[in-house]
Nucleic acid binder design. Structure first.
Lengths: 124, 124
DNA sequence: CTGTATCCTCCAAGATACTG
DNA sequence: CAGTATCTTGGAGGATACAG
């Protein structure tokens, strides 16, 4: 028998309440993974994230910059060169993101099977 | 210097591509945490999730059921009694959710500080 | 190359009221 | 108690075209 739930378990000022916000961004996790090994250029990021539009990538990067997870650096030179890299805060997210991806890789089939099995049983 | 990014790093059929989907649900993570210690009733879940509307909670629970993360059990008896519990698949998510919450607890202040510091520097 | 400017569609999520 | 029904709003995210 579980104990009663703490009403303040998810107090509005508790960080865990806000936890999902950063992951509501569809591309945020993938962008962070792309920066794992070092700085990348805008066009480099678009390679693995093939289905992202320039506009969506721009938005994601802006949100990540605003939250101190990514830094943008404009390198001087004849042709334009902009780099994005993880901040220390961003790097601290890597283990969490990896865990998330590992879970997906390990259990995604189960989830899809369950979804198929429940077709018609559970309303959409 | 990082090596070039693998174009198939996030292949459309790769689970990690779909990873963020489950966390796009604002309440999913919190519901799962509420079920950590055992089955809970609908009204019990509404206690810690004070700001959730009945309708949103219903929707979240339906999605979680559809994906095989939560099961719904209707207990017979004179008065109505419905319980929600984690499936084994749902339980396998717990460590990941905990990691997410721990990260938030540890770094949320940094994120908020960065957000404030970048006010005006980065467009919203 | 690195974005911006528009426009559009879809859906998450809240408010409110109601039901067996 | 455990939801459903309806309506509304906001914002995410894609398409397309254009700019410095």
């Amino acid at each position: 028998m579980p104990t009663p739930l703490d009403p303040d378990m998810f107090d509005p000022v508790c960080p865990s309440t806000l936890m999902p916000l950063r992951f509501a961004d569809k591309w945020a996790g993938m962008v962070i993974r792309c920066l794992e090994q070092g700085p990348r250029r805008f066009s480099e990021l678009r390679v693995p994230l093939r289905s992202v539009s320039a506009q969506s990538l721009t938005t994601s990067l802006r949100h990540l910059r605003r939250d101190g997870i990514v830094v943008r650096t404009e390198r001087p030179g004849p042709e334009r060169h902009v780099e994005y890299a993880l901040t220390p805060l961003g790097q601290s997210m890597l283990p969490v993101i990896e865990a998330l991806c590992a879970w997906s890789a390990d259990h995604w089939d189960e989830l899809l099977d369950a979804r198929e099995a429940s077709a018609g049983q559970v309303r959409t």
